[in-house]
């Protein structure tokens, strides 16, 4: 059996779906954070696969941009998480419920 590009695309789709579902159902902010990373990396896999299928280097270059953006997001996101959980115990999203209506 030859592994064609479509297999990679399906794996990427599954990873992306796992990430998106996890973000929506998990209550721990750090886990939600990891789910976002999972989604971004699933997209990276999609880009690389398409780049290979289309024989175009552009898609592989885009991955570098995504990695940089993901790193910047991690830095800022963790800083916000640390700032907020210095004032309260635990990292559960359900406790963050001051704003509603």
């Amino acid at each position: 059996m030859t592994i064609t590009g479509n297999y990679y695309l399906i794996v990427a789709l599954l990873l992306f779906t796992i990430g998106a579902t996890g973000l929506l159902i998990r209550r721990n902010v750090l886990v939600m954070f990891m789910c976002i990373e999972l989604m971004l990396n699933a997209v990276n896999l999609t880009f690389v696969t398409f780049a290979k299928m289309l024989d175009d280097v552009g898609g592989q270059v885009i991955v570098f941009f995504t990695l940089v953006v993901a790193a910047a997001e991690v830095a800022v996101g963790l800083a916000i998480i640390v700032a907020i959980f210095r004032r309260r115990r635990g990292a559960t999203a359900d406790d963050i419920d001051l704003l509603r209506g």
Binding site: L23, M39, V43, F50, M53, L54
Partner: peptide
């Protein structure tokens, strides 16, 4: 959290349009 979520969805859209 929601902004990063939407960015990731947007990026997946870019990937599919690229494909």
């Amino acid at each position: 959290v929601l902004g990063s979520f939407s960015s990731a969805i947007f990026l997946y859209g870019v990937a599919l349009v690229y494909g």
